[in-house]
Structure formats: structure tokens, C-alpha cells
Design a protein around this nucleic acid. Structure first.
Lengths: 227, 227
DNA sequence: CCTTTGTTTAACCATAAAGTTAAACTATTT
DNA sequence: AAATAGTTTAACTTTATGGTTAAACAAAGG
């Protein structure tokens, strides 16, 4: 009785096999891993699936990235670095508060519209292993709320703004931006909207969020009444 | 050479083994499964871990719930039913808009403070399998936005409120309530807050969210200026 | 044409996890 | 106290998956 096995499942990609093309292949692996990890999460992802997606063999995955853990690390820190810095960098500038908000929303939506699974992925994997994430953030020295708090305090003193902790302000902004993406799958399936309807809803939010944020914090909110 | 295995890992609970106590055991299994699934998600959860947590053997799990899938289904629909109906029921009443908002926030926080992993769990599992969720929701006939939209339209006509699609209104409310829980692990690890600090932050939000929602949508927001 | 070097693969291995089974145990009934 | 029916268990089987290996392959240089 001969034991026989075939692990490569049916898909049978066009095997290009042009040897000596290392960087091209590595990039393709990362892209495929991204796709699979984003959708399935670490635990749900299968190395075989990533290999298939990249049109290569499982062993090659281990040749480039020694283990699932390492491959995941590469994908995850890449994801975080792509999402977090451009978005939070604007909060450390010294532009007026509402300019910051507009810049934040724009940066967030620009990044995320092209990677709609990214927020959900990051949130879930942070939950699975919070320290991994905080390491990355700490290393990149982002998200200092001191400047923002100072700005809010000044506005409150001058009577222009309502007093508010910077943390709450930031959490509001992030909630309004991120949650609709994090919960997109659910929202769609409940509301019965199709993909492009929901896309439209999100575009609408991109316009409104800065106005909403202004109305939440500005003492005289009558300047933002068209909505 | 004798093959020998022990699957029960070390913990060694006090085995109570009082036969004929079916309902008690089933409840305990569900509680344990809940705990494990909430923290680890479906893919990350291990049947053995659930059995250990419940102080019983793996086979008993399969005796009560035929498979991991079925056990998960029980836990998930239980979770959704515990979270969704009390929260969304209030939106279908005919109380004034801001009473609804306050009731929603209270209901949400009351449910979630006792099950802080619930929102993240639901969101992640909905993402993994959206149809499962929409089935449950559809079956329970919740989340009709028509009444809310009508209310918003009336307010807009009378000049009291700013015109706003009910979907956006609802999404704002849900975002402000849910996201801080969904992303709690991440937030904590980034902000360096400990558990009780973050708990305090969340309590603070419970107070503020109704005011923020009012300021976002009410034309004359000066009545909600203490913040 | 042969060798070398980097690339790719199928087949294999080890392990962990889901699921099954047959026997033992406990309490209740007779 | 013996039989019965409802519980509980250890040990086992099967399958899936991460990881390894030895050999084949392609291209470049001699």
C-alpha cells in the first residue's frame, strides 16, 4: 500500500518559474499574505492558502519567511506602519484644531478606502496580542496627546471651545472614522446595502465627520449648520 | 512500546461529579465556552480549553454540543441576543429623540460593562461570517430605521434639528458607544492606561455621549454646553 | 557541454486539535 | 442490594496544518 499525497490543491496557476527574481517573489508573497491575513486573521489563515494565492509552494514561503509567525509579523507591522503614521502625524503639527481634524479624516479615509479590511484586522490582532502593537507604536514615537490637550485648553479658556479631555476628543474622532469600516461586513448584511451603497455611505461620512467634530466641541456651532 | 496519552492538562479541578444535573452542567459549559470564544475567537479557541475551563472532559462537550461549530453557534446567537435586542428595542419606541439616545447609551453600557469582550467578539465573528449574523437579526425583526428617520425629518422641518440620514445618525451613536470597547486592548496598550483608568474613561463617555449626539444634530446646541 | 548557484518543487514528518468509543461511575428505582 | 438510566471519563482515531528535506530545475559563467 503506497501512501500518496498531493497538497497543492487544484487551482494550478500558470507557473512562471523564472528563477533569479527574488524581490518580485517576496513582494508577491507579502501581498498574498496580506490578503489572507486581513480576511481570516492569524488563527484563521492557512500557510497553504497564502502559497496558493501567491501561485507558489508552501516550502517557498518558509524559504522566504521562516515561519508563520515571522510572515505575520512582517504583514502586521507593515499594516500598522501604513495606517498609523500618516494619520497620526497630522495631530502633532501646530495647525488649527479643525484643520487637524480635516487632515486626519482625509488621511484616514485615503488609506483605508484602498484597504477596507485593514482596520478590522488591526483591531482584532491588537486584541489577540496588545503588546506587539504597543511596541510598534512606542518605537515610532507617535500619538502624543499633550499638544492636542494644550490646544483644547486654550480654546476652552478663550470661550471658543467646550472643555474636553484630549483622550475623549481623539477617541471620538477615531470612533467616527474607524468603526464603520471595522463593522462594515455586519452593517452591510444588516442594512441590506450592497457594496457600492455602503461605499457611498462612507464617502458621505468623510464630508460630515469634520462638521460633526466641530459641532461637538465648538461653543458656537451655528457656523456648521449645513448638513 | 506502549502508546500513552493524557489530554487533560494539569489544572485538575475539584471533580464534583454529581450525576443527573444536566441543566447545571450545560449552563456551565456555555459560560466557559463564552469566556474562551470571547477572548480567542472561533479559530483561536480550543475545545480542550473550554472543557478545562468548565472542569469537565472534552467528550462531554461533544455529548452536550455535537461539534465546535454548534457550540459556537449557541454562544454566538446568545451573545447577539443579549447585546442587540435590549439596545435596539429602545430605538423603535416613540419617545423623544434624545430620550432614545440616552436609553440606548444606558442599555449599551449596562450590557457591555459586564461583558467587555462582547463587542469585539461580535464584530470579528460577523466579519468572518456576515450571513450568520444577518440571519439572526432578520429573524428577530430589529433595527428598523424608518421611525427614526421620520423623527429626524420632523425635527428638521420644524427647524429644531439639522437634516441627517438616520443611517448616519445611528452609525454615529453606535461608533461612539462601541468602538472604545472594540479597540480597548489597543487603546490601553498605547495610552499606557491600566484597566481601572480605562474603565474610568469609559464611564466618563457614558455621561458625555448623549450630549455629544445632541450637539451634533440639534440646531441650537447651546443648551448642552456643560462638558 | 559541464559546473555552479540560486530557486522551486513534491513528498514527507510531527504534532495538535476535533471528534469517537467503550467502559466505568453515580444516583435513583425497584 | 440489584437493575437501570443518566453522566462522566480515559484512551483512541482521524484529519489538518506548520514545518522540513532531498532532489530537480533554470540560468549564467566557464
Amino acid at each position: 500500500m503506497v501512501k500518496q499525497r498531493k497538497e497543492t490543491n487544484g487551482v494550478m496557476r500558470k507557473t512562471v518559474n523564472t528563477a533569479h527574481q527574488e524581490p518580485e517573489t517576496e513582494r508577491r508573497i507579502l501581498q498574498s499574505a496580506e490578503k489572507v491575513f486581513y480576511r481570516q486573521g492569524y488563527d484563521g489563515a492557512r500557510m497553504q492558502e497564502i502559497a496558493d494565492e501567491a501561485g507558489i509552494n508552501k516550502a517557498l514561503l518558509h524559504y522566504y519567511f521562516r515561519s508563520k509567525e515571522r510572515l505575520f509579523d512582517a504583514v502586521f507591522s507593515d499594516a500598522v506602519m501604513r495606517l498609523v503614521p500618516p494619520v497620526f502625524a497630522v495631530m502633532n503639527s501646530n495647525s488649527p484644531l479643525m484643520d487637524k481634524v480635516r487632515a486626519f479624516v482625509d488621511a484616514y479615509f485615503n488609506t483605508v478606502v484602498n484597504n477596507p479590511f485593514l482596520p478590522g484586522f488591526v483591531v482584532h490582532e491588537m486584541h489577540r496580542n496588545p503588546s506587539r502593537f504597543s511596541e510598534i507604536i512606542r518605537a515610532s514615537r507617535l500619538l502624543m496627546l499633550d499638544g492636542l490637550q494644550h490646544q483644547l485648553d486654550l480654546g476652552a479658556e478663550s470661550g471658543e471651545l467646550i472643555a474636553m479631555p484630549a483622550e475623549q476628543f481623539m477617541l471620538n474622532l477615531l470612533s467616527l472614522c474607524a468603526f464603520p469600516f471595522v463593522a462594515a461586513g455586519a452593517m452591510q448584511s444588516v442594512s441590506g446595502k450592497n457594496d457600492s451603497d455602503y461605499q457611498h455611505l462612507l464617502e458621505e461620512r468623510r464630508q460630515f465627520i469634520p462638521q460633526w467634530m466641530a459641532r461637538m466641541v465648538e461653543r458656537d456651532a451655528s457656523s456648521n449648520q449645513q448638513c
